[in-house]
């Protein structure tokens, strides 16, 4: 098993869905991935995201990659 590499990428799907009054299931159907996988992304448990997935999410939510994902500042 590869060593778990820590990251500080945060996913903001929760907020974006709230703002649009959209459910995770509806987004999953529109994007074409399973609710399980999208839930993994929403809860910051994903280790990698396909470009095609992020493109579809941004298309559906009418936003940019930076709106969906941000990198948390390193604690000093």
């Amino acid at each position: 098993m590869p060593v778990e590499e820590p990251h500080r990428v945060l996913c903001h799907l929760d907020r974006l869905l709230d703002e649009r009054g959209m459910t995770l299931a509806a987004l999953a159907e529109a994007v074409g991935v399973t609710v399980v996988n999208l839930s993994v992304l929403k809860n910051n448990r994903a280790k990698a995201v396909r470009f095609s997935t992020i493109t579809a999410i941004c298309e559906v939510l009418q936003c940019q990659v930076g709106d969906v994902l941000t990198v948390e500042r390193e604690a000093s």
């Binding site: 959209m22 509806a26 529109a30 074409g32 991935v33 996988n37 095609s52 559906v60 939510l61 009418q62």
Partner: peptide, 15 residues
Amino acid sequence: PDRADQSGRADQTGP
């Protein structure tokens, strides 16, 4: 976005 859920895309699947 309000019509996006009717697109029926199914070419991506999870692991």
